[in-house]
Design a protein around this nucleic acid. Structure first.
Lengths: 224, 224
DNA sequence: TGCTTTTGGTGACATGGTCACCAAACTGTC
DNA sequence: GACAGTTTGGTGACCATGTCACCAAAAGCA
């Protein structure tokens, strides 16, 4: 039995051998293609997912059809919201989408509960994951309420850029990512371009002057 | 040993007798006066609080000194953020203040961990509490991003009004409550007054036409 | 090629946040 | 009561952002 994936998760690496064995035996590795809805309100989720590879985007759907990005689950993190999903709250309306092809460890409810009973380290791992999400949401709220749009966009561009300093995203995508309107993104990007920080082409932003963006973010005392 | 407070918490009422005894024996009832800081970043919290009476206001402090209200913990709910506080995340900056005199059950870390190991029902109670907070934050974010200020204020006034339809709060307080500026509250309240929905006096808003406020809230498909 | 869809640009306008002030209402002190 | 200081609320000007109504260019497709 291969337990090697366990060490991808910081909080789990200290698990004793018997728990590691139980965890691996009681779970399975799954892959889901990009675009799959990993969880959704009303849909019973009977697995806790630990991401080995890829990213999951968690977003809030409003009544009016618009969407706000909440957070992104990366490899090495767990998608605790699926456990909240298990509990099925009435008015809750967030869903999770695989942004890329995703490989994950699926821990069924029974295994999850057994381990939570037996292992203090596993418990701490779960509580830490919950707390991390909560504090992430705190900083997101702080950001939305207090931070200027141009700073938030600059910060997000730096985050999303690949090794070639290119962000592959439409203005509309960046809009939902920051919970704003496409027009606002268009205007702000034009301004960035005027300052020589970026070049634009359809569906793509090329960062030609990271320093400018970084300066803007830093001088605003930026959160992520 | 008096275990009667346990039944104030919906998720705990199903606890078996031995766990009830352990919970009561391993915790104590505390009271804190209004205005006390219940938890804060950097401050080690070694107790999980279950509120028996009073309310705790959880708010985010921004770098610039402004504050946003995040949520309110009521009697019968647990203040799970103290557990997050135990974990002490770097960039986390929310604090909790007793808004009224508060009576609470303080569960020290050791008892908490013992019970989490022994009782599936206790575990579920804790996970439910976490999930509840997370979904609360989701609806808050949705509200901030999509809802108009006048609707949010109307909704909040209805919530905060006492039995006499009076809200005792300054404009500045309502401002932090909704994450906006005092001036915006002043303007919006003037408009409500013009429409005959409220009367104002210093530090006090009297709801003289709840129907109008309720209509506004309902027609916006309102969240809390 | 022409038609449709996706993406991006733009002006006009409404809402909300910020700033600078002022005025009125309370508080405490003499 | 008179006075000064503090708290609370009101207001106009201005800027940032969200909304709406269009249009145009680019890409996809029959």
């Amino acid at each position: 039995m291969n337990t090697s994936w366990i060490d991808k998760f910081k909080g789990l690496s200290r698990l004793p051998d018997d728990i590691r064995t139980a965890l691996v035996a009681g779970s399975q590795i799954v892959t889901v293609p990009a675009g799959t809805q990993v969880f959704a309100p009303g849909q019973t989720a009977d697995n806790l997912l630990l991401l080995l590879d890829g990213t999951v985007r968690v977003q809030q759907k409003s009544d009016t059809g618009r969407e706000v990005f909440l957070y992104r689950v990366h490899a090495g993190e767990s998608c605790v919201l699926t456990t909240a999903c298990m509990l099925a709250f009435e008015d809750y309306s967030a869903d999770g989408i695989a942004e890329t092809d995703v490989t994950a460890v699926a821990i069924p409810r029974k295994t999850f509960d057994d381990l939570a009973a037996k292992s203090p380290i596993f418990r701490e791992f779960i509580f830490t994951a919950y707390s991390r999400r909560i504090t992430d949401l705190f900083t997101l709220i702080d950001d939305i309420v207090f931070q200027r749009m141009d700073v938030r966009l600059a910060s997000r561009l730096l985050e999303l850029a690949n090794a070639d300093n290119v962000v592959r995203a439409t203005h509309a995508f960046l809009g939902t990512e920051l919970g704003t309107a496409r027009e606002v993104i268009s205007r702000t990007l034009s301004e960035f371009q005027r300052r020589g920080w970026i070049e634009q082409s359809r569906g793509e932003v090329r960062l030609t002057g990271r320093e400018g963006l970084e300066r803007m973010v830093k001088s605003a005392g930026a959160e992520v």
